[in-house]
Design a binder for these strands. Structure first.
Length: 384
DNA sequence: AACAGGGGCAACCGCTTGCCG
DNA sequence: TCGGCAAGCGGTTGCCCCTGT
């Protein structure tokens, strides 16, 4: 059965011959591809437009990078996949010269196996049950030297060494020097509700001072500020990290004070909180409801904070989309109208970080409330 | 040398999305 | 608002090549 666009045509299928490639390249080079359905006819090809498009995009495009994936590209794929899931086109955008098809094939043929070999579920990036059981037997420590927690995605090692104290990290590297931190003491009655992580898949957020250090440039997310996220497996005591960087991002970090009850984490089952203030680029958080940021260190700017956008007071706390971040649970139950950033995004335009990815990162925070279904990584997938 | 099995990759299929009349 | 069309996208298939027996 042919494509819809060519069902009435007699089209060739299967592998492309060099002659066909040449015809297509010549035509596209000379005329472009404003309408793919017209391309085969004008190029003298017995193919459907859809096939021509695929051939061009996946193989003939001059800007394609051929050959094996580098270690860096591999790490990038894993990192972004952890956030976006099987959204190959989105992942491929972070790999110049690579196509979604190429990334997908590489994932299925190589990376997936590596993750499984490391004891990680390639779909969720969480520990596989077998590995979790094994590691739990070691009281959360890494007994084998093949600890998935050592699979630190950015290669920078910012959070690898902080397994014991840094469950989840969001930071941005380049303006680290402009910020210091203040610690907000968690009200004891509030902290458990906010940080309880009820199941194995709970993702935790926290702050890692080390993660605030500048990190070398990353090839992806070149359209926004950087975010570094680090995940610790609550039960196994393991941690992995991901970095979303770009050269213009501001620095920020979040921190949980030591000794937070039950793991310092954002819960799938609870309303979760990530605090950043896009009024100053990002993570310029100042006057935050102490109940919301219990146990967190909230970064404050040291130098010339940017003026707040319209509709926001300096230092007001805004994060993500309200519908995403403020899903109810303990936080919402207390009447907190948190994380509504829509007015900021649409208004002053002061944010510079990758909203799409950031939102993907943030989604998990609230989606489990009122029906904590699925796992953390599935909740990360942005529901566009 | 022949064969089987597996891996990698290119291409296809079908659904979704966006645009336009 | 609706329907048709084209493009985008992710999942799947099938072919080719390599390796082990």
């Amino acid at each position: 059965m042919g494509h819809h666009c060519c069902s009435k045509q007699k089209v060739k299928r299967g592998l492309w011959s060099p002659e066909e490639d040449e015809k297509l390249v010549k035509y596209i080079t000379a005329h472009g591809h404003s309408c793919w359905s017209a391309v085969p006819k004008h190029a003298g090809l017995q193919r459907c437009g859809k096939s021509c498009r695929l051939r061009w995009i996946n193989y003939l495009r001059p800007d394609l990078k051929r050959g094996t994936f580098s270690d860096h590209e591999e790490r990038t794929i894993i990192d972004v996949h952890r956030i976006l899931g099987n959204r190959w086109a989105q992942i491929a955008k972070h790999l110049p010269g690579r196509t979604d098809n190429e990334v997908k094939n590489f994932w299925n043929s190589c990376i997936k196996k590596k993750l499984i070999a490391q004891g990680l579920d390639p779909k969720t990036h969480n520990l596989l049950p077998a590995s979790r059981t094994l590691l739990q037997g070691g009281n959360g420590a890494n007994p084998s030297g093949n600890n998935p927690a050592q699979f630190h995605s950015n290669g920078g090692g910012a959070a690898v060494g902080s397994v014991a104290t840094t469950p989840f990290t969001i930071s941005s590297p380049t303006k680290a020097a402009a910020y210091d931190t203040v610690t907000v003491t968690p009200p004891p009655e509030m902290a458990p509700a906010m940080y309880d992580v009820p199941n194995h898949d709970g993702m935790l957020m926290g702050h890692d001072q080390a993660a605030a250090a500048p990190i070398p440039a990353y090839p992806y997310l070149d359209n926004g500020g950087g975010v570094l996220m680090s995940f610790r497996d609550q039960n196994a005591g393991l941690q992995t990290s991901m970095d979303f960087m770009n050269g213009s991002s501001s620095s920020s970090s979040m921190d949980h004070a030591a000794g937070m009850p039950n793991g310092n984490g954002f819960s799938q089952g609870m309303g979760a909180a990530a605090f950043m203030d896009v009024t100053a680029g990002m993570w310029n958080t100042a006057a935050v409801d102490s109940a919301m940021c219990a146990g967190m260190e909230v970064v404050q700017p040291q130098q010339q904070p940017l003026p707040p956008p319209q509709g926001l007071l300096q230092g007001e706390m805004v994060v993500g989309r309200q519908a995403v971040m403020n899903g109810g649970g303990a936080v919402a139950d207390k009447g907190m109208d948190m994380m509504d950033v829509s007015s900021v995004y649409g208004g002053a335009g002061t944010t510079t970080f990758d909203l799409e990815l950031m939102e993907s990162c943030a989604l998990f925070c609230g989606s489990g409330v009122g029906g904590a279904t699925g796992n953390a990584m599935e909740q990360l997938q942005w529901d566009c």
